[in-house]
């Protein structure tokens, strides 16, 4: 008994030191194989299906169209807006259905509106860019305009103002062409329901602002900047003189040359590169940017011009394509 008494405290002490296991939340062993099996069966049936949003129970096209206008702060004519959202593919599909059922309901697609919208987009963007970049040559302006009216950019804008679910098209999800076309049609519909000025502000706020934070020189590739620069300066009876103003690591892999361009002993620009020819070309590009008013430190483009702007061209930089 005494032996027992002697050892009881020891036994209790050892009990205290036993680590009590905290319950760990494990993912059961059956979860992964089951999910894999589900995935395999889904793939067997032809991959994951995305149901069109407009087939859901909670869908009201009229409410969606109303909210679309209100969201963008624009007053659309409701019939025109519906027409703008009706793609040609949808009309064809519906006509086929109607033929089967032997009824005929006329539907309008958005081709006309898209044409009108595209025309307005091109004209307005051209005029706007000429106003905000008065020294930039026409070829460059056309390059920026092409970027702004490209399918990808218009589709991006269209997607982010919420057209994706509302578009009536034969397929879902809709492709970029349909998205861009719908955006043009919306511009056309706005033109017909609210007039020039409202439409102009709409295009300015949603399309032209996409230039924010972008380098406008990227949309116009100049093949031979040196020839263009000398050509421009010849018209003003001035000649430009390139000078090598720095070289480092000559004859090594990391060679760096620096060329400065001078007009009447005053430096207009510098450029550097791994050979003298490249450095000269870079300097010419810098000089052209200075002439066109599109340097890296140019003032941000003004996105707040109201109405239809009237460009004042400083037209001494009209260049034929180089």
């Amino acid at each position: 008994m005494s032996l027992f008494r002697r050892f009881v405290p020891l036994y209790i002490k050892s009990l205290k030191n036993v680590p009590t296991s905290t319950p760990v939340k494990n993912i059961h062993r059956w979860v992964a194989p089951t999910l894999m099996e589900f995935k395999r069966r889904e793939n067997k049936l032809g991959g994951k299906k995305t149901n069109p949003r407009n087939t859901f129970l909670e869908w009201n096209l009229e409410a969606e169209l109303y909210a679309f206008g209100k969201r963008l702060n624009e007053d659309f004519d409701s019939n025109l807006l519906l027409q703008a959202f009706t793609d040609r593919s949808y009309v064809i599909k519906e006509e086929m259905k109607q033929k089967e059922m032997e009824i005929e309901i006329k539907m309008k697609d958005n081709r006309e509106l898209a044409e009108q919208g595209e025309k307005f987009l091109n004209e307005y963007i051209q005029v706007y860019l000429e106003t905000v970049l008065p020294k930039f040559p026409l070829e460059g302006i056309v390059g920026i305009r092409r970027y702004l009216t490209s399918e990808d950019l218009l589709a991006h804008v269209s997607l982010h103002i919420g057209t994706k679910d509302i578009i009536l098209a034969a397929e879902y999800p809709v492709d970029n062409f349909t998205l861009a076309n719908t955006f043009k049609a919306i511009v056309g519909a706005l033109l017909n329901s609210s007039g020039d000025e409202r439409t102009a502000h709409f295009v300015r706020d949603f399309v032209i602002t996409q230039l924010q934070g972008k380098d406008v020189n990227e949309y116009w590739h100049i093949e031979d900047p040196w020839a263009m620069l000398t050509g421009l300066l010849e018209k003003n009876q001035t000649t430009v003189e390139p000078r090598l103003i720095g070289e480092a690591g000559k004859g090594t892999l990391l060679a760096c040359y620096r060329v400065g361009l001078y007009i009447e002993k005053r430096m207009i620009s510098t450029g550097f590169g791994e050979s003298i020819a490249i450095a000269k070309e870079m300097a010419a590009r810098e000089a052209l940017k200075k002439l066109f008013g599109t340097e890296d430190h140019m003032k941000p483009i003004n996105f707040k011009i109201d109405g239809m702007p009237k460009p004042k061209r400083q037209s001494h930089h009209q260049i034929s394509a180089s």
């Binding site: 969606e64 969201r71 963008l72 103002i161 919420g162 300015r204 949603f206 032209i208 996105f303």
Partner: peptide
């Protein structure tokens, strides 16, 4: 900010709620 929101005009990003 999505779509340069606020450079031109502000558009509320919530489009529908169920």
């Amino acid at each position: 900010a999505p779509l340069q929101n606020g450079v031109g005009r502000y558009v509320q990003q919530l489009q529908r709620i169920v």
